Amino acid sequence: MTEDLGGRYLVTLDLDGVTDKAALMDRVSRALSLPDWFGRNWDALADSLADRTVWPEESAARGLLIVVRGWRPYAETDPDAWRTALDVFAEAADRTPALTVVLALGGSS
Rank of each mutant, 00 (worst) to 15 (best):
M1W: 07
T2S: 14
E3W: 10
E3Q: 11
L5Q: 15
L5S: 12
L5D: 10
R8D: 06
R8M: 12
Y9I: 02
L10C: 09
L10R: 13
V11W: 01
T12V: 15
L13N: 04
D14Q: 00
G17H: 05
G17C: 10
V18Q: 01
T19C: 03
T19M: 08
D20F: 10
A22M: 09
A23Q: 15
R27E: 13
S29G: 14
S29R: 11
R30S: 13
P35E: 11
F38C: 04
G39W: 02
W42S: 05
W42V: 04
D43C: 02
A44I: 06
A44S: 14
A46T: 05
A46K: 06
D51C: 08
T53V: 09
T53P: 00
V54A: 00
W55M: 03
P56A: 04
P56Q: 08
S59T: 08
S59C: 15
A61E: 10
R62D: 09
R62M: 06
G63T: 00
L64I: 05
V67Q: 08
V67E: 10
G70R: 05
G70D: 06
A75P: 04
E76S: 12
E76R: 15
T77E: 10
D80I: 10
D80A: 15
A81W: 01
A81D: 15
W82E: 00
A85C: 07
A85K: 01
A85Y: 04
L86N: 03
L86T: 09
F89L: 05
A90P: 00
D94G: 03
T96D: 13
P97G: 12
P97V: 11
A98T: 07
A98H: 04
L99Q: 02
L99V: 05
V102T: 14
V102C: 09
L103P: 02
A104W: 06
G106S: 11
G106D: 15
G106N: 08
S109T: 10
